[in-house]
């Protein structure tokens, strides 16, 4: 069995918080920034990418102005979340994980928003929760002018 190899809480421990700050600033992880993180944390670039690509939070391409997150929690699933996802995919003509070419919307799924009583639900821009959805309601949400969806809160 491997012996205890004591490491000091090094700069490496700041790797994920650093990536989070970068994503906070740019909306995604630009390559040059990952290279900088590698230098600052004293690890190789492939390690930074290996870690970043492991976690669902990080993205490597720019994000749309409106971020639509479809809850894929269990309560939402049994109340029809797959249909909600399909309807949004159809309305926006993109698949889960994609961004519309005009960078208006990014469509993602999220493990659980935690609004199980409102299932099925979606969250737009991390604040605007739409609950107890039906395909019809979804169509209405995305039929409203884009600006409105963005400003609603």
């Amino acid at each position: 069995m491997e012996a205890r190899q004591v490491l000091s809480p090094s700069k490496k421990g700041k790797l994920i918080p650093m990536l989070q700050q970068i994503q906070e600033r740019f909306g995604y992880l630009p390559e040059e920034e990952m290279v900088k993180v590698a230098q600052l944390c004293g690890v190789t670039e492939s390690k930074v990418f290996g870690a970043a690509s492991f976690y669902a939070q990080f993205r490597f391409t720019p994000i749309g102005r409106n971020r639509v997150m479809v809850c894929r929690g269990t309560a939402c699933h049994v109340q029809g979340a797959p249909q909600i996802m399909e309807t949004i995919e159809r309305e926006l003509s993109i698949k889960e994980g994609q961004t519309t070419p005009d960078l208006e919307y990014t469509l993602e799924s999220v493990a659980c928003i935690g609004c199980c009583a409102l299932a099925p639900c979606i969250m737009i821009n991390n604040k605007d929760v739409h609950g107890r959805l039906t395909p019809q309601k979804v169509t209405e949400i995305f039929a409203t002018p884009k600006r409105e969806a963005q400003d609603a809160s």
């Binding site: 490496k12 421990g13 944390c41 492991f54």
Partner: peptide, 14 residues
């Protein structure tokens, strides 16, 4: 926490 991929370490291990 150590800034790496969260790949569990196989048993046997401490």
């Amino acid at each position: 926490l150590e800034g790496a991929r969260g790949m569990p370490k196989p048993l046997p291990r401490p």
